[in-house]
Design a protein around this nucleic acid. Structure first.
Length: 288
DNA sequence: CTTGTGCCCTGCCAGC
DNA sequence: TGCTGGCAGGGCACAA
């Protein structure tokens, strides 16, 4: 599942390979993934054909492609989405959702087995509602323990958020780019149990959490992300951070720090992994 | 406003 | 061997 480090890796790859390349044509093979209202597969082709990507950026887990006429396309890879560079002469892969043809036979395949991903196109100057909803970016220089404290406290300080910290980290409107892998990993590094009530965390906990979120994301980007199942770089290579995971998908295996067996917890329908020794239970009561 | 639940979709795998 | 049911999960609509 592409999270912040995986999407960042993909964006860097795309930038180095398809930026400013003339798009001879583009096709949408799965019109159901196009979420911008009232647009058809023909609109999609018309929007891209004859233009080029002038800018490619990451916002949370979204990829934002800015075309030379100022229009923008956003892509979300969901669970199983990937962009893979190919050649015109190569056969069409299974589960191809959209495809981009460039000059000199270069082709970009957008493959998504489960089709949880989405595409949307926006005219020049048009607002992009998906991006406006996004919360703080954990690897931005603006991100700090203080901003994290504001987020766990919610809109008014009287009502600190009572959700589990793991669930809060996954909420893209609060913090953008964190998924299940890095939520579990950052909490382990910070020594915080995933089911801790977010609003009960003190400033020293939040300082460690903010720092470890940045650390784990930065380290994962250096390894090209984490390949658990489907994720691949645009050169169809796996991300190598899997080797460095401390708790994610390691139920019953020894903690890499202390040897205690990793526990899997169900939180809001998602799996959270933690080490009972490195992440001890803290007092959850919101007294005061 | 808050938080929780079920749905979308397909591949995989345990169990029979 | 081959079928089946359950599971995985990001984001969204909807409920309370």
């Amino acid at each position: 599942m592409p999270e912040l480090p995986e999407v960042e890796t993909i964006v860097r790859g795309l930038r180095s390979r398809v930026l400013n390349c003339h798009i001879t044509t583009a096709k949408l093979l799965r019109p159901d993934i196009l979420k911008s209202l009232g647009h058809t597969a023909e609109d999609f082709t018309r929007f891209l054909r004859g233009r080029h990507f002038q800018e490619i950026e990451r916002r949370g887990k979204y990829i934002v492609f800015t075309l030379n006429h100022g229009g923008r396309m956003i892509a979300h890879l969901g669970m199983t989405g990937k962009f893979v560079l190919s050649r015109q002469s190569q056969p069409q892969p299974d589960h191809l959702c959209s495809v981009y043809h460039f000059e000199r036979g270069l082709r970009l395949d957008h493959v998504d087995v489960r089709r949880f991903g989405q595409l949307a196109i926006y005219q020049p100057g048009e607002a992009i509602p998906e991006l406006e909803k996004l919360g703080a970016d954990p690897i931005s220089t603006q991100f700090s323990a203080e901003s994290l404290q504001g987020l766990v406290r919610g809109k008014n300080d009287d009502k600190p958020r009572r959700r589990a910290i793991h669930t809060l980290l996954l909420d893209q409107t609060i913090i953008s780019g964190v998924g299940n892998i890095y939520a579990s990993e950052a909490l382990h590094r910070a020594g915080i149990r995933p089911d801790t009530i977010a609003g009960s965390l003190g400033i020293s906990d939040l300082q460690r959490l903010a720092a470890e979120l940045q650390n784990v994301m930065t380290e994962a980007i250096k390894q090209g992300g984490t390949t658990v199942n489907d994720y691949r770089t645009i050169d169809d290579k796996p991300g190598l951070f899997l080797e460095y995971l401390r708790v994610y998908e390691r139920k019953d295996q020894p903690c890499r720090a202390c040897g205690t067996e990793i526990v899997r917890l169900r939180l809001g329908g998602r799996s959270a992994y933690y080490c009972p020794k490195c992440q001890p239970k803290i007092d959850n009561e919101l007294s005061r």
